[in-house]
């Protein structure tokens, strides 16, 4: 059969695949997951950028029938599209935890997730533990962290401190983590990161009245939130998934109907129809996971949880 090439970029690798012309998004996605050995596939997606807007490859539609960039090979980013409510309960496989760790770390370093200087230092110390293992002053001599990107640029600029002073600060915490294995260190990182206000939120500029893009809409694992444009930390309003009846769009307008029929219907405009489609897609996916978490685990999940427990116990013994 005729094929076309795609390049898939994960948080730590690049892969090339030959796809059959008739393949749906799901065929490519499944192949990537199999190649990575990833079973917790429901958090992830294949992302691309078209005309400056982020989009996710649709699973049920043929790859070539989607509005993907015309390049050879076509590039996709394999990324977490949805986030768990509690990392420690939901992320079971080590590979899943590792991919989340790398993605969230990048978001924090790129300042897409705001984080106080104190917390960034603590997070950096867990990242160092994950990378270098236990601290050994004979081996980890001053300057050993110089090459590593560990703190957001904003934090580095905020203080009059040399790189060596930062290294000392991070190392003081790092030395405390002795005995923590790589996967544990990454999980500790995620447990702290998940409490940051901007973690796991997809933000979209919206306007309630035309010509005033004065608000932000945030979609996350718990629901939909509305923020002032200059405050991404605390929403003015929140709609939990369990309190929403219906979400719909028509062109650029989007409507959220609360379950409580007496409550006010929330209407707003996004920048383009494409964005509304993306918002609805994220709402459906997050709501689906929200329902799944509140049901009895499937046999597959039960097995994975048992396996993860065994694996953890085995590692602890080895360690």
């Amino acid at each position: 059969p005729k094929t076309f090439k795609v390049k898939v970029i994960t948080m730590d690798a690049e892969m090339e695949f030959s796809c059959e012309m008739k393949w749906k998004g799901k065929d490519l996605f499944d192949l990537v997951c199999r190649t990575l050995g990833l079973r917790e596939t429901w958090f992830f997606g294949l992302q691309y950028t078209i005309k400056g807007v982020c989009a996710w490859l649709k699973m049920e539609k043929k790859v070539l029938e989607q509005e993907i960039p015309k390049e050879d090979p076509t590039q996709f980013r394999f990324l977490a599209k949805f986030y768990p409510e509690k990392v420690e309960e939901e992320l079971l496989q080590e590979i899943t935890q590792h991919l989340f760790f790398l993605q969230v770390k990048k978001q924090i370093l790129d300042e897409e997730i705001h984080c106080s200087p104190e917390v960034t230092v603590l997070l950096a110390s867990y990242a160092v533990q994950a990378k270098y293992g236990d601290y050994d002053p004979n081996f980890h001599k001053p300057g050993f962290l110089i090459q590593d990107e560990l703190l957001p640029k904003r934090v580095l600029k905020q203080y009059q401190m040399t790189v060596h002073m930062w290294e000392e600060k991070i190392t003081a915490w790092y030395a405390e983590h002795r005995g923590i294995a790589r996967d544990e260190a990454e999980m500790n990182y995620l447990k702290i990161a998940q409490d940051l206000a901007m973690y796991g939120v997809n933000y979209f500029p919206i306007e309630q009245n035309k010509n005033h893009r004065d608000l932000l809409l945030g979609v996350d694992a718990k629901g939909i939130h509305v923020y002032s444009i200059n405050n991404r930390f605390s929403p003015n309003r929140s709609f939990e998934w369990s309190a929403i009846r219906n979400i719909s769009y028509s062109e650029k307008e989007l409507t959220i109907k609360p379950l409580d029929k007496k409550a006010e219907v929330f209407k707003f405009f996004s920048s383009q129809l494409k964005v509304n489609k993306l918002i609805l897609q994220l709402c459906i996916g997050n709501h689906d996971l929200f329902m799944k978490r509140r049901r009895v685990d499937s046999i597959e999940i039960q097995q994975m949880k048992a396996q993860a427990r065994e694996e953890k116990a085995r590692k602890k013994m080895e360690h």
Binding site: R245, I247, Y249, S250, L273, I284, D288, R295
Partner: peptide
């Protein structure tokens, strides 16, 4: 529970989605 009426319109009923999964 997800309906696309035309290419520029879409609707998702969370209530129906919940009912269908119970």
């Amino acid at each position: 529970y997800f309906a696309r009426k035309a290419n520029h319109k879409g609707s998702y009923s969370l209530v129906d989605a919940l009912k269908s999964k119970v």
